[in-house]
Design a protein around this nucleic acid. Structure first.
Lengths: 230, 230
DNA sequence: ACCTGAACACCGTTCAAGT
DNA sequence: ACCTGAACACCGTTCAAGT
């Protein structure tokens, strides 16, 4: 695939995205990327100070691609939800990028676009400006945590998953009903963490946004920071 | 520290907990554990099929220690919150264990205890039994995601953190106000993902539990699954 | 029966030596 | 000025050979 020539930083990032997409989870390495490019791993260290810096740059590309084509639609909750689902989708097949993103935030144009959209949506929500940065932070933490942890679940190898499922089954069905009465009672319907992730993601986010909304609406909920007047 | 003798599975796990606690983040390895025990890494593979299986067992110990001494107090929300904070605390210094736990769930006695407590708290909340397993699942996903991602943030090396902070600063303050008006407006108050994690954890969890409560209380919120009668 | 040593197939990163 | 090769200091895991 690769002749011998000089590669620009951009081309390296393109190749990294491609390699991450085609290689199976957790197996990306600097050495493999170099091999794909037909060069030595050491030469990549002129473009990036470390593997983390490289992955961070790739994560921002993914984010950029995720936001590409997004047009705000609906109320502020729908806008945030649509954006979050796009980001989730984008990182869905890139477990290690999700982890890097959640750890450090990518800090590039992709990041900026996502931040901007969420901040605009919150501005449209009726929240007082003074509360927006903190609300934004909680939303970002929540979304990043859910996406990264979901990606982590996705990165589990089939046999590890099988072991985990078996352990879960034993933990739930093997529990002594005397000591664990509630567990025994709900054993049949309790699901492992990895089950049903998309619905869980949407519901948890929806719950969080609904909670914010309750704090902004005068007729409902306890508005923090004094009663609103109309 | 180590004479040459046979080690039981339990002793290996004790040593692993100790090594994880004293070693700095992300540097735990099977080989180091073997070195601490004065044996060869290969001999550990009679006790565990893989590093993951070993870490899973260790994670369950951590969970067990976290729940040890816990006594239910207060209403159902306070009980879940207290438990979650204990688990958070326990995994706070064990990033890789948190990741393993969130990926597969540990499936041991520690897991069982946590599940039991949360299920009991939910039973006391007034939710109909039919809704409890799904509610439990969302709570578990949320808590695991927050803890694992927080642990991930904690595992970042100082210089990586410095790079990340700088990138964030540039992304926020360097944004073109024309293209990113909201970002420009809130630049001064927006915090990076890693900031203020404990408060974020508590607030996000509180919001989620409040949302559940709103669904159970007849006088408030839209109760899913038909109107309650009293 | 149990454990060891050596090996396999990898990592990220550095740096002297080459072109 | 740029890149390479080789090396350093590691990994998880397997398995023949030893006790």
């Amino acid at each position: 695939m690769a002749g011998r020539r000089r590669w620009s930083t951009e081309e390296i990032l393109d190749a990294a995205v491609e390699l991450l997409r085609t290689s199976d989870a957790e197996s990306f390495s600097v050495r493999k990327l170099a091999a794909v490019l037909g060069t030595d791993s050491s030469s990549l260290y002129r473009h990036f100070r470390s593997k983390t810096e490289l992955l961070r740059a790739v994560a921002d590309r993914i984010l950029l691609a995720a936001v590409d084509g997004y047009r705000p639609e609906g109320d502020w909750k729908q806008r945030i939800t649509a954006l979050a689902l796009r980001v989730r989708e984008a990182f869905g097949e890139h477990p290690q990028l999700a982890a890097v993103w959640a750890r450090y935030a990518s800090g590039g144009t992709g990041s900026r676009l996502v931040m901007e959209e969420v901040l605009q949506a919150l501005s449209a929500s009726g929240l007082p400006d003074a509360e927006i940065p903190a609300r934004y932070h909680r939303i970002a933490v929540l979304i990043a945590a859910l996406i990264a942890s979901e990606a982590g679940v996705g990165a589990v190898t089939p046999e590890e998953r099988a072991q985990g499922t078996e352990l879960f089954r034993v933990a739930v069905f093997g529990a002594d009903p005397e000591r664990f009465p509630a567990l025994a009672r709900f054993a049949r319907d309790v699901r492992p963490l990895g089950a049903d992730r998309r619905a869980a993601f949407e519901e948890i986010l929806a719950a969080h946004l609904a909670h914010i909304e309750a704090a902004t609406s005068p007729t409902r909920g306890p508005a923090r920071g004094g009663p609103p007047r109309r």
